[in-house]
Write a protein that binds this DNA or RNA. Sequence first.
DNA 1: GACACGTGGTC
DNA 2: TGACCAAGTGT
Length: 364
Amino acid sequence: MFTQISRQLLDWYQIHARNLPWRKEESAPYAVLVSEIMLQQTRVETVIPYYQRWMERFPTLESLAQASLEEVLRYWEGLGYYSRAKNLHRTAQILVQTYRGEFPQHVEHLRKLPGIGDYTAAAIASIAFGQKVAAIDGNVRRVLSRLFLISEPLSLPETQKKLKSLAVQCLPAEQVGDYNQALMDLGALICLPRSPKCLQCPLSVLCRAYQNNQQNDIPVKAKKKSLPSVIVTAAIIRKGDTVLLAKRPLGSLLGGLWEFPGGKVEHDERLPECLKREILEELGVRIEVGNHFGTYHHAYTHFKVTLHAFEAIIQDSQIPHPIEAEEIRWIPIPSLDKFPMGKIDRLIARELVERKDGHGKFMV
DNA sequence: GACACGTGGTC
DNA sequence: TGACCAAGTGT
């Protein structure tokens, strides 16, 4: 049974493997590292253009290790989960400094590097170094839970153990990297979360879920909670051709990215009052709130936000200070695109550039 | 073990 | 519109 699975899968992969940029380069460890980190919780189609730009700018471990975090984040902007970029940058520096630029080949060592967990360690070890280890991601969980008709919720630790044990037993003696990628490609192309294409599946004869017509009921997943909503305000404070930006603290949401300063509306608070309070708390200066600039909606993983942006001026030539921010800076509007930002702030920045000849109340 | 951590696409 | 999903990791 186990031997049949890996044989069928490897045969299928020979014909149907996706032609992905990081599979062209003889699986150089650095290419595998970069692609695997980018692919965490992120679709292949999203990753491809980012991967290509990244490899042009940071073609080697050394080039990445030497780059500034600021530039690294700028290249990562839009991919989300920005701690991945910080960890990847840090990992490159560790590999250069303490491993002399050589990748460790075993999971236990890879696992210790920042941003590399169980899945990624196994993926690198198997794809780049041919180690016989199981790389278990969301695709693999789905494929194996159907193949072996695992009816218990995937969230349970017991189920995870069972899955891991089965995954290890399925491993072929050779071509483990191809086998792991085959399993993931099967999950991405055939064994889809909804409406799996069982008629095209090389494993359908062996699949217990399909044989019992339960492929649509498995895997069993826990329900997700609905997302809370918050309302926030942000200030567009100009001085000449520049605008005031704050760098978010590392380790927080969008950590290390730049934003228009502001914060959450408290219960029953009016928007201008919120903004005045937030700017006083964050920058230590009193402002006058001017024109409404725009309203933006965005959904993060664990909450939804509505952001109201206003133009504002600082009273009496007071000097703002970074009280809660990592750093603050007056940025020339044409240079805004050099600073890494999250989705909403990038939208505001772009509108600012486009509206540079607009007629805001406080335009200089 | 639960929760924080982004974004874009789909139904 | 809203819920769910997509190659997980760190705390």
